[in-house]
Computed example of a mutant assay.
Amino acid sequence: MKADPAVQRRLLDLAEVDAELARVTHRRRTLPEIAEIAEVEQLVRTKQDALVAVETTLGDLDRDVKRQETEIDQVRARTDRDRKLMQSGSVGAKQLTDLEHELATLQRRQGVLEDDLLELMERREAVESDASFARVELDKARQTLEDASRRRDAALADLEATETRRTADRTIMAKGFPDDLLKLYDRQRAQRGVGATVFQSRSCGACRIELDRSALSKVKEAPADEVVQCEECGAILVRIAQPAGA
């Protein structure tokens, strides 16, 4: 294949654009914010689970407190009823003795219930403190996730802008190459990642392998308008002026 040396040299400009587009694609897949977001999303789920667990415990304690308060109210109501009955003077000696015994039992029961209620209230206070802490921690995790998402979106927007600009540049540049040369370049780039590279100091700029004497002679002896490819990786070797003796 033949191509004007100046046209071949412009392949290096095209290769640089393609390399930048490849870097954009790679960076889009490997943004540190992506891994950070995945990690923080897991943290948010963990914090949510912790909050749900502590709020469940808090709800259970609230029900226990309410049940305990209801039972205390019932004991107090029974106590008030017995006292009023004793004070009415309408009960006999036997019933009066029974009421006095029941009142003593109710007072002891009320004392036990109130002690249990106090313990429940203390436990609830501690759990409420845990719940408040869990809410703060969840809010922090959500804020961290929001921040990471914002930074990811900004980075992706920058990459999108770069990709759009350089894709437009490539479209314009590609029109300046013969179809057969461009097809060869694109095919090689699709297969090996690099379509064209500079040949300098006896080495291929793509695979970095120094040519042996035989291959070097073929490259140097090829006409300037001959399209030469690396025997190792297939990249188009764009020959530029060599220092004397190179």
Rank of each mutant, 00 (worst) to 15 (best):
89 G>F: 09
73 D>G: 04
146 E>F: 06
51 L>F: 03
66 K>Q: 02
79 T>N: 05
109 R>F: 04
76 R>V: 00
97 T>S: 05
115 D>A: 08
56 T>S: 15
165 R>F: 14
104 A>R: 07
108 R>E: 15
54 V>D: 08
60 D>C: 10
169 D>K: 10
158 D>F: 05
184 L>Q: 07
176 G>L: 14
180 D>Y: 10
169 D>P: 02
165 R>H: 14
149 S>A: 08
116 D>S: 14
59 G>R: 14
73 D>Y: 11
129 S>K: 14
52 V>Q: 07
55 E>D: 10
74 Q>Y: 06
126 A>K: 15
84 K>R: 15
164 T>A: 04
179 D>S: 15
73 D>C: 09
103 L>W: 00
170 R>D: 01
73 D>N: 09
179 D>Q: 13
106 L>G: 04
68 Q>C: 07
163 E>K: 04
66 K>F: 00
125 E>S: 12
99 L>R: 01
187 R>G: 10
87 Q>W: 09
161 A>S: 11
134 A>L: 02
163 E>N: 11
93 A>P: 06
187 R>I: 04
153 D>R: 05
121 M>K: 12
143 Q>V: 07
135 R>Y: 01
103 L>E: 00
132 S>K: 04
138 L>K: 09
118 L>V: 01
124 R>I: 01
72 I>R: 13
107 Q>M: 12
177 F>D: 07
169 D>G: 02
54 V>I: 13
126 A>G: 11
58 L>Y: 15
79 T>H: 08
119 E>I: 06
134 A>P: 01
145 L>H: 09
88 S>Q: 09
144 T>K: 08
121 M>T: 10
162 T>E: 15
180 D>M: 11
108 R>D: 14
51 L>T: 11
98 D>G: 09
181 L>F: 03
164 T>K: 04
90 S>E: 05
125 E>I: 14
152 R>K: 06
90 S>Y: 14
142 R>T: 00
99 L>M: 07
186 D>V: 15
182 L>A: 13
169 D>W: 00
113 L>V: 08
75 V>M: 01
80 D>L: 11
128 E>K: 09
180 D>Q: 14
94 K>T: 05
132 S>N: 02
96 L>I: 05
137 E>S: 05
127 V>W: 04
166 R>Q: 00
184 L>A: 10
87 Q>L: 15
109 R>S: 04
175 K>Q: 13
183 K>F: 14
177 F>L: 07
120 L>T: 03
100 E>V: 12
109 R>N: 12
150 R>H: 09
68 Q>R: 03
124 R>P: 04
140 K>A: 13
86 M>N: 05
